[in-house]
Design a protein around this nucleic acid. Structure first.
Lengths: 246, 246
DNA sequence: GCATTTAGTTTGTCCTGACAATAGGATGAT
DNA sequence: ATCATCCTATTGTCAGGACAAACTAAATGC
């Protein structure tokens, strides 16, 4: 539709050009300026219009395809994907999620200790026998209502921890401040029944459905930094994700 | 570690060069030939060793980084990520998953109908009022044991459906045979308690934990082809995924 | 001995250019 | 009118080069 999408590319900005394009197109889509189903101009013309090379333009569109916002077809063109598609799965913590949604998260630190890692934890974090970890359980509330019960184990050779800090900042925030750059995480989502310990903390009854999530996070040096087991009230929380065919 | 990883690149193959590299390195990692934590040669030398250009080599490594198998750091190098990392989330059906694992899946078609889409379905598939859809429920078993109860709605203007075909082939297989090229899907994973209808079908008791999954799939033309609501026994199934920081 | 600078290595970004593969419509023959 | 063929538009793949930015480690100065 020759929608010339008037983007501003700032060549003096430290933000890479392709990323500026990603942000621009994403904003145009989310604002409705680019309608779902509409066709974009072809790569060559778009690149020329913005004074960019085709590889740069292509890299930007690659990201948007991966994010599930665009669909490409050889010989045909590129199309904005029909709405419904939300943000893809990102490596962010629940705390970040809640802050982004405008909720007011608070955290109760239920237990905090610095202990020898047991066999299961050593396996998950690839630690030597005798290594110690921080182990703690937290209860996350939003606007006073309990949402998640979290149990975590963190290597002790990266950041000095204390229980008080955990009450005011998210785990990932503390680790990032301590110089940890997260790169990837594996997580497993399942379900279980609330037991007698969990139910009162989450303000529900034993036997209620809970969503479970286990996650292990890796930093940019390849270290397994943190592993955790979280449970959420099923009526409050679910995991949404976008899968892209490759 | 100058691990020269002896790959064979076949320039006459229809498989893109960068993808051959992806497959080669992935195989080397999964076979243990490239150990977790070990460092790869730098991009330039690797490209030269395989007689490829650096952009091609880079594209291959990009994919592996996204897949969570490699970690890169400017000025330092590229490293094989510590094991633990399984396959990332892909757009495949449960049927495909089970076949890949070597199980013997069978399917009972419980109900099958061709009906007017209700408001909720029209919203999910972006259909006009009065449009019709195929609606069916299936019970998926592996080696005779029930695993998943699935309820799906499919547009009726793409592929002609009949209940018998569903008993022998997976939904996605039928649609793919009908010319549908899936591109992406959004799904939401949560939990619920088995009710009186679900429990006997899944060979469990009312009140047991179930994993729920809702999915809507989009094809390469942007059409919302299929939406479904599946439930799994929590003791048999969970969703595993790899999240990559961008 | 310690902090600072400097040089080297490696990945990150960006460019120009070229050809291949595919889809879809236009064209032409039957 | 129908079918096969050609043409065009568009994305997919690949090459080679250049410079920037970040990190490491060695050399330097105090």
């Amino acid at each position: 539709m020759a929608n010339s999408l008037n983007l501003n590319i700032d060549r003096s900005s430290p933000v890479p050009l392709y990323h500026q394009v990603v942000q621009g197109i994403e904003a145009a889509i989310r604002s409705g300026n680019l309608e779902p189903g509409s066709k974009l101009e072809n790569e060559i013309d778009l690149a020329a219009a913005l004074n960019l090379s085709r590889p740069t333009m292509r890299k930007a569109m690659d990201e948007l395809v991966r994010a599930g916002l665009l669909v490409r077809k050889r010989g045909v063109g590129t199309q904005v994907v029909s709405s419904q598609v939300r943000r893809p799965l990102e490596l962010s913590s629940l705390y970040d999620d809640l802050v982004a949604r405008g909720g007011k998260p608070t955290t109760d630190v239920l237990t905090f200790s610095h202990v020898d890692a047991d066999a299961a934890t050593r396996e998950k974090l690839a630690l030597h026998p005798g290594a110690k970890v921080y182990h703690f359980t937290r209860l996350r509330k939003v606007d006073g209502k309990p949402l998640a019960l979290m149990e975590n184990w963190v290597r002790d050779d990266i950041v000095e921890f204390d229980g008080a800090a955990l009450a005011t900042a998210g785990l990932y925030g503390i680790l990032r401040n301590g110089g940890v750059n997260f790169r990837l995480a594996t997580q497993r989502v399942g379900a279980m029944i609330a037991n007698d310990y969990q139910a009162p903390l989450l303000d529900t009854t034993p036997g209620a459905a809970l969503v479970t999530m286990e996650r292990t996070a890796v930093d940019d040096t390849g270290r397994l930094v943190e592993t955790g087991h979280h449970v959420y009230r099923a009526d409050n929380y679910s995991f949404e994700m976008t899968l892209v065919q490759r």
